[in-house]
Design a protein around this nucleic acid. Structure first.
Lengths: 335, 335
DNA sequence: CTGTTAGCGCATTCAT
DNA sequence: ATGAATGCGCTAACAG
């Protein structure tokens, strides 16, 4: 045991001339305690700087007062913003978040969740990720579970996510209205539901506009920068003609931007580019990246509220957040 | 207690026909156990899918097997990269990291550390931050402590940081060699040791080159984007003349870049710009931001190794990582 | 080598 | 309203 934390409940019991149960009672507020005794306890707590031992408390109560949060890639602005929201949402609730990083690798995600589980988390928030939905279903049975920014079939009521279809649709429409016909779509992983929805939104917009979808304009990515870069490189190398790009997330849009830059192609003068997520860095690109805003912090906040509800057995409040297209200077009218 | 995790050590003891202590022994490897019994235990563990209860273990052993990590701003690429390093460094060590976010606010940092402490962390890694050094000294007495990316007087042997002075000196020299005389320095918070060192490096380079430092070129920032933006705006408004900017971190360089962009000033054609930290996004600016590389992941790795050494009472290995200037395309010769 | 036992610090039930 | 007693699951002496 570390040197600190020597003061225990019995120390203050002694100091306050009461029994340890009384101390426990005033600390937890589980039963009424006479005023003088309560004050004595509180005073002793103060004087001795008592800090409850989380382990002992957890052992005895069966509650850890901890919420596990599986995030993807510390360093990814979007997921980090969600984490921020969770932190804020959990403040002063008595619960504290325990973070683990899945790194977008199913195996890593599993291990991370196992670790969290071992720490007896009272609830689990999973953001994004590639974990098979079967595994998620299993977790859902073991612990109050909330999934953020990902739609999992069969667990819809546990998922906090936005209308990807509509947002992608809007973004594509925006490009079409600017006069674009040949719009590249750089998608996410095919097995990922969000990616599918966004793609459908894209396709639906084309359809509405009477534009024949062109398979050669649709590229599968993996949500990472490199994928965006490669996508553009390949398109160019293959001589595919296009005037606009819609990427399923900002990271890939960054990559695409980079590839264009290397070839001396200007954005938005030569090609229009839209991303998705509104990562903070998007605003700092020169010129700023046009993107679909996913309110990540708000998502995190909602997630923390939601998980607390679940823990208390309350029904999940319906969730709705609107996404909107952030139009900056980087989308141009087609010349 | 959650529904899961019902299997306890005695369940498998029963199942394997041994005593609970034997089970504990094979699980912890604290003593030799006959082969048949060991195998029986392992088998039982497997069959029952036993998961040790961290709380019970912690209570009994006094060890939490957890390392607290106070980071600044989830979402700051630099600190996140450090976190990544810590995660990697702790893999397969039996220890797991517990993250908390200080958000660059002393009060928040304190609360976060208190929370970590309450969770009985075996060691504490603090990255950056603004916590008064007196507080840090106190923590150092309570728990094995390692400070990353910040130099704290009196705790030097506990600090993992780089040679800020030399790096700032080099960056400034680089600009001078390119022909710049009037170089703006956008600094960090004055009370922050790193900021002071970087500033001194800047001043020393000027001195060596025989350039008289000009107070009007030295701006105090706070490491955030907004500060860089404001700095440039103010300089411009006041009609200060300069041909290059050296910012004490990339975030502020981003801000400066933005301010320049808004005024139609090109980088590097019109003004040279150097940042500090080599945040990933720096490479994705158009053109990429020239910056001083701080190997953040390596810092995190070293930190995790270091904290484990401290916990085991081993002396801290001397640490050295060189920083180097990443010269990309955004520094121009003075026309 | 192995089983028995005594706590770790706290919540909680049971008496009072 | 309050104290005594029990146990959470596990580790670490302590006896064989």
């Amino acid at each position: 045991m570390a040197i600190r934390d020597q003061v225990t409940i019995s120390d203050i019991a002694e100091r306050a001339n009461v029994s340890i149960s009384t101390v426990s009672r005033v600390l937890r507020g589980t039963a009424r305690v006479s005023d003088p005794k309560r004050k004595a306890v509180l005073a002793a707590v103060e004087e001795l700087n008592y800090q409850p031992n989380v382990f002992a408390r957890g052992l005895a109560s069966g509650q850890s007062m901890a919420i596990g949060v599986l995030t993807q890639n510390f360093g990814s602005p979007f997921y980090d913003a969600i984490s921020q929201g969770v932190i804020r949402g959990l403040e002063n609730t008595g619960y504290s978040p325990l973070f683990a990083d899945g790194q977008w690798q199913p195996e890593m995600e599993r291990r991370s969740v196992e670790t969290l589980m071992q720490r007896q988390i009272d609830g689990l928030i999973i953001t994004g990720g590639l974990m098979p939905s079967s595994v998620l279903h299993r977790y859902a049975e073991e612990v109050p579970l909330l999934i953020v920014a990902r739609r999992v079939p069969g667990l819809e009521e546990r998922c906090l996510c936005l209308d990807n279809f509509r947002a992608a649709h809007e973004a594509t429409m925006h490009l079409i209205e600017l006069g674009h016909h040949r719009i590249v779509y750089i998608g996410g992983i095919g097995s990922h539901d969000d990616a599918v929805e966004r793609r459908n939104g894209y396709l639906h917009a084309l359809d509405q506009a009477g534009i024949e979808p062109d398979e050669s304009l649709i590229v599968e990515g993996d949500f990472r920068r490199q994928a965006g870069l490669l996508a553009v490189d390949n398109l160019m190398r293959n001589g595919v003609v296009f005037t606009a790009i819609f990427a399923a997330n900002d990271q890939m849009a960054f990559g695409a931007r980079m590839a264009l830059f290397r070839r001396g192609i200007r954005v938005p003068e030569d090609i229009s580019l839209i991303g998705f997520d509104d990562e903070p860095a998007a605003a700092f690109m020169i010129p700023p990246l046009t993107t679909v805003r996913q309110p990540a912090v708000e998502l995190g906040l909602a997630a923390s509220k939601g998980i607390l509800d679940l823990i208390q057995g309350k029904p999940l409040e319906p969730f709705s957040l609107k996404m909107k297209l952030i139009v900056r200077e980087s989308v141009a009218l087609l010349r």
